[in-house]
């Protein structure tokens, strides 16, 4: 059903991601891990066309952009992962003519039912964040499932019940949790770091949050360090001089 569930109840679970733009290094591990998991999970197949040809294309659920802000000494580059934000009022769901797109009442995850999607692409037009990619080969729309087939999967160890992208991130820039719960780790993180939502003006009420890059520090801190160990200025013994000579020859 493409009418939205009532998500205004107190204590409503809002599962989502918190992405740290300060620590993301743009390594693409999350994107690759996402592709790897989802091409065999709920979203399977996640088709690539001509993957080794001159003009490869395909459906990916997570894309990592590179942006630059500021000027001169204040210019900085940053990496910007972009995926479905599991909005609270997603127009991608309400425009769906078949009911294939839906928002889950129990946790707010936005999903596409691949068995009833007709591939009209209207949902991708309705999304301001470019979160939906059409699978040319499969003829249906694909999107981030928040790894719904991992996070509740009792066949996995409890510590693995996280989205694949979160598990893969080597810098811990991706966090997963319940943003509907004020006391959850992710909510606290958003609070302490001033996390923001994308395009709040459009009123889609995204659940995912981004943590802004930390303020720039112009120079490294002064660190009291011991002087480097000296070589060849020892006790002047024969052995010391031989080693000193070897050291010079080898240097």
């Amino acid at each position: 059903m493409t009418t939205l569930p009532d998500t205004t109840r107190p204590g409503q679970k809002k599962l989502g991601l918190v992405i740290d733009l300060d620590t993301c290094v743009g390594c693409q591990a999350c994107a690759v891990s996402c592709k790897e998991w989802n091409t065999q999970g709920y979203s399977a197949p996640l088709t690539d066309l001509e993957p080794y040809g001159p003009d490869p294309s395909g459906a990916w659920l997570n894309r990592i952009h590179g942006y630059e802000t500021g000027e001169g000494d204040n210019a900085r580059g940053l990496h910007f992962p972009r995926s479905c934000l599991h909005c609270e009022t997603p127009a991608c769901v309400t425009v769906c003519p078949t009911g294939a797109s839906y928002k889950r009442e129990e946790d707010g995850i936005v999903l596409v039912n691949p068995d009833t999607c007709i591939g009209c692409k209207l949902c991708s037009w309705a999304c301001p964040y470019g979160a939906r990619e059409y699978d040319q080969d499969d003829g249906v729309m694909k999107k981030c499932t928040l790894c719904v087939d991992r996070i509740y999967n009792e066949n996995l160890e409890p510590e693995d019940r996280k989205p694949a992208c979160v598990k893969a991130c080597p810098t811990g820039a991706r966090h997963f949790g319940d943003l509907g719960d004020e006391n959850s780790g992710v909510s606290q993180l958003v609070k302490s770091r001033g996390g923001f939502e994308l395009l709040p003006q459009m009123d889609y009420k995204p659940v995912n949050r981004y943590l802004p890059p930390r303020a720039r520090r112009d120079k490294a801190g002064d660190v009291e360090a011991a002087p480097l160990e000296t070589v060849g200025k020892g006790d002047g013994s024969l052995a010391e001089r031989v080693f000193s000579w070897i050291d010079e020859v080898l240097s």
Binding site: D55, R63, H65, Y67, T69, Y134, L198, Y210
Partner: peptide, 25 residues
């Protein structure tokens, strides 16, 4: 769109060839 405010420039695309979002939108 990026929430970074002010003057933002793109320096790297996420992919080497055009994707669905670019060709459709």
């Amino acid at each position: 769109a990026t929430g970074l405010g002010g003057d933002v420039r793109q320096w790297e695309l996420p992919h080497t060839s055009e994707n669905y979002i670019q060709s459709e939108m």
